[in-house]
Structures are given as C-alpha cells and as structure tokens.
Amino acid sequence: MAQLVLNGLITGMIVALPAVALTLIFSILKFPNFAIGAMLTASAYIAWSLNVLAGLPLLAAAVLAALLFALAMVLTDRAVFRPLRERGPITLLVASMGVSFVLENLCRLAFGNLARNFDIPIARPHRFWGLRVNQEQITTAIVALAAMAAVYLLLRHSPLGRAMRAVADNPALAAARGIDRDRTILWTWAIAAVLTTIAGVLVGMDRAIDPLMGWSYIISIFAAAILGGLGSPVGAVLGALVIGVVQEVSTLVIASNYRQAVSFAAIALLLLFRPQGLLGQRRIKR
C-alpha cells in the first residue's frame, strides 16, 4: 500500500508538469489545449534523437530539446493559434486537436511504432524502510519538484509571471498597463513546452517512448487540471498528485489497464458534484 502511494506520488509529479502547462495555456489563451499529450510525445522524441542518434548525454539532450521544442511551439502558435485568437474556445480547441494529429503522426512517421529507450545505465533499485525506490523515481521527484518550484517562483515573483497573471485576469486592463499580450502568450508557450519536455523525458526514462505515450496520459492530465479548478497552477499540481495516487491505489481493485478510466471517473464525479474544482474556491471573476 505504501509502495503504491509512493508510486502514485511519483506518477502524479510527472502528470503535474503538463497539467501546469495546460493550466497556463488555458488561463492565458482561454482554451483547453488538446495537443498537450502530443506535445509530450514530440518533445520526448526530440530528446531521444539528441540522446541516442546524436549521442549527447541525456541532460544536455533534454536541455537542448526543451529549447528546440519551445521554439517549435512558439512557431506553431504563430502559424495556427494566432490567426484564430479571437474565434472563441471551440474553434481553438478543435485546432489544437488538429495540431495533436500532426505532432503525433510526425513522430510515428519518423520513428515508427516501436518503443524507444534513452541511452542510460540501468541502476538497481534502492530500498528504504521496505519501500522499493529506483533511481529514475528519485530523479523524477527531484527534477519535477525543482521544475514546479521554478514555475511557482516565476509566476509569483518575476515581471513575466505578473504579466502572465495580469493577462489571464483582465486582458483589457493589462493592455492599458502596457503589457504586450502577444509577447506574454509567446512566453507562455515556451514555458509550457519546457514543462512538457521535462515530463516527456521523465516518462521516457521511467518507461519507454512510443507514439502513443502522450495519448496515454492525456485524460490524467486533464483530470488533474480540472481537479485543480482549471486555471490554478497550484491546484493542478495537487490535482495531479491526487490523480496519481488514486490511479495506483485503484490497481488493488481494478485492472491496471483502467488507469485512464479511473481518471475519467474522477472527472465525471467532480463535474457532477464540484465543478469548481477540488480546492473549491472559484477564481474571482470580473
């Protein structure tokens, strides 16, 4: 049981990163980005190419991949989402599904359906108080926590973070205060891309990389973000941890193939009983 909770927390930390990315995009661009799963896949493949094909050490490959992918998403925003900016959330979310098809299948076309692994040594798991903890889990916990702390500091205490929150809160007033919305949106995509790249690499280390890896997380990511009340990054992190633990613990009673179904059940229950998210307090409107 304790082992399951631990595994669940680690899964939750991985899910938290794209869930935060989803939340940032939702609060600033006002649409749910259905390409978030494919972004996970694409960034993982970029890192894999740099690591295995180009022979860079994993850390360097990950950093470079994050930068490249940030650039790619900024360009995608320019080409796809910017022309549709004022067309409402429905149009944008259908467009994001289009982006998702393109990203995921570019990966499939380039790399095939085979599962790929990073070039890293296999380490023996450690044991603490009877709990099995492997090296990847330790790395995951450290990296994910560091990334979340960085995002938190950035949002709370940097000019960019204030600008992002201001645009999310009241775009018209933000413009009157001299905040450039397009520049803020651009940085939002870059940050979201970096977060998904980190998550993509962590998933790749933990399991393997295949074209469907992002797809297999997408419901959990949305569940986490909705659980957190869509729009609150801290809420998304807590939501992700809850989802991770619930998924793992549910394997005691349901086959583990039903992970995503468990997330879906969480969404369904939540929408029925607490549509404002777990944290309860609705973001103040207007």
């Binding site: 467009a95 982006v99 393109v102 995921e104």
Partner: peptide, 19 residues
C-alpha cells in the same frame, strides 16, 4: 506510415479550413 501521413494531412486540413 501511410496511416500517419493521412492523419497529418487531416490535421493540417482541419487547421487550414479553420483559418
């Protein structure tokens, strides 16, 4: 590969039509 090319085309088609 053919299947993925088709989905890429559909994705691009969706986006281009929307725009």
């Amino acid at each position: 590969q053919l299947a993925s090319i088709r989905l890429i085309l559909i994705g691009l088609g969706l986006i281009l039509f929307l725009i």
